[in-house]
Design a protein around this nucleic acid. Structure first.
Lengths: 243, 243
DNA sequence: CACAGTCTGTAACTAATACCACATTTTAGC
DNA sequence: GCTAAAATGTGGTATTAGTTACAGACTGTG
């Protein structure tokens, strides 16, 4: 299984070891839209996403969702369940056809006994996650939506190494990931397009003015309000920043 | 050293082992207001807070701060630096006279070699942190300030096992921890007091109506707007919830 | 090809809360 | 205990972004 070799958690293991793992643990497929687990359910172990894509999210009382994570192939999820925790702290739902592998608490301990290097890999992954959350909190509380979107687009562009990025998720999902709602997101993408920062083709976005996006992400400038693309250059809006 | 025995990271170690540790690693004291490290500085290792209290926080471009964590005695901090990371992802500043112990990356690896149980403790701590951030993100994006404050007061009350809680930090710091500003916090505490939910004596708060606070934290009810404490009972405000 | 369903975009309105200014209280140092 | 400095409280205003409503675009299906 090629997918197994690309799993960061198994970095450093031999081909044979990975082969053994691939055979030893149960798998399951989920269709797009299917729920893998719900917040509050007893958590018996953790998962690795072998293929597909899924979202980890929270729901408010009113039903509003905040996506915590988009999990891509190769990444583990619900690792928190392995330790201190007995119930899942969030929801997990496939956003496309996905295949996952499950590791019970006991199985993981067995695993670690055989290959101690796995535990260091796990620590590295957890600390990466922590750093990710650190940034998410910063973005949500210290930045406004246009800045968050700009930062996210730049992140995607860097990851794909291209000026043209495909979201991979719907606009509504993107809104949830950025901590906002589709309407607001729509307005902002329209403003960005109007300002000549990006161009949109459905779920595909082309970055036109990378420097402008970066300045926006860093909070060095605002985003034009009107839709017209002919305005006095320089910053506008956000008068607080003038002070 | 008694403080050492209370460090969760060293849970399961013998007295002698802890004694050795207490002697083997460097310490340093910081006065209230002193900075331990800044975001972006190279991170060589992690710390344990032996006594005192400190805040881990982020700063926005405009200088607004968001506190990520209030670290209490016994807790490690900047553990993220041990793995994947080479620079601190946030600031750390003592909010009162504090003493910390430092563990370099190398020292930690040595430590783990001698006492493998430490690595499991570390994993447990990291996953607790992860869960904490999960909630912080949820609160910031899905809840409004009154709900966050109510949840925080209940958290403190549970931790201290008393109806009367002392904040331990200034109101301004609390505002930053809740992702808001002192003025807004002040208004909300006034409304809570007016609504008979709490009573305030400086940095000491007494919970009067625990059920009411819980209902508020869960989003089951809103918070009266006017200062008057005589109003129609039941929920008000937040008409969206009626739908 | 028509239909239903979902996703996306636009507009008007509103609510929460940040911003600014200032009064008041508390704290700390002398 | 007095004074300066910091923290806190309060009023008024401005702004971001959520809410509601609806129209158009896209998708897949019979």
């Amino acid at each position: 299984m090629d997918a197994m070799a690309a799993v960061p958690l198994f970095k450093g293991l031999s081909e044979k070891q990975i082969d053994d793992l691939a055979r030893a643990f149960p798998r399951r497929s989920y269709a797009a839209g299917e729920t893998i687990f719900r917040e509050g359910e007893p958590a018996e172990g953790f998962y690795i996403l072998l293929s597909g894509r899924l979202k980890i999210y929270k729901l408010s009382m009113e039903g509003k969702e905040q996506i915590l994570h988009i999990i891509e192939a190769g990444e583990p999820f619900a690792e928190v369940a392995l330790f201190s925790e007995t119930t899942f702290p969030a929801y997990a739902e496939a956003i496309r056809e996905s295949e996952v592998m499950f590791f019970s608490r006991k199985a993981f301990q067995q695993l670690v006994r055989n290959d101690p290097s796995i535990i260091m890999n796990m620590l590295a992954i957890l600390s990466q996650r922590l750093k990710y959350f650190t940034r998410l909190v910063e973005d949500l509380s210290l930045k406004e939506v246009p800045q968050r979107l700009a930062a996210y687009l730049l992140f995607l562009a860097d990851r794909e190494g291209s000026r043209q990025v495909s979201l991979g998720i719907s606009k509504g999902q993107l809104a949830s990931l950025l901590g906002t709602i589709p309407e607001t997101l729509s307005r902002i993408t329209a403003r960005m397009a109007g300002g000549g920062l990006i161009e949109m083709q459905g779920r595909r976005i082309t970055i036109i003015d990378r420097d402008g996006l970066e300045a926006l992400a860093e909070g060095m400038r605002g985003l034009q309000k009107g839709g017209s693309r002919f305005q006095v250059p320089g910053r506008r809006l956000k008068t607080k920043r003038e002070a």
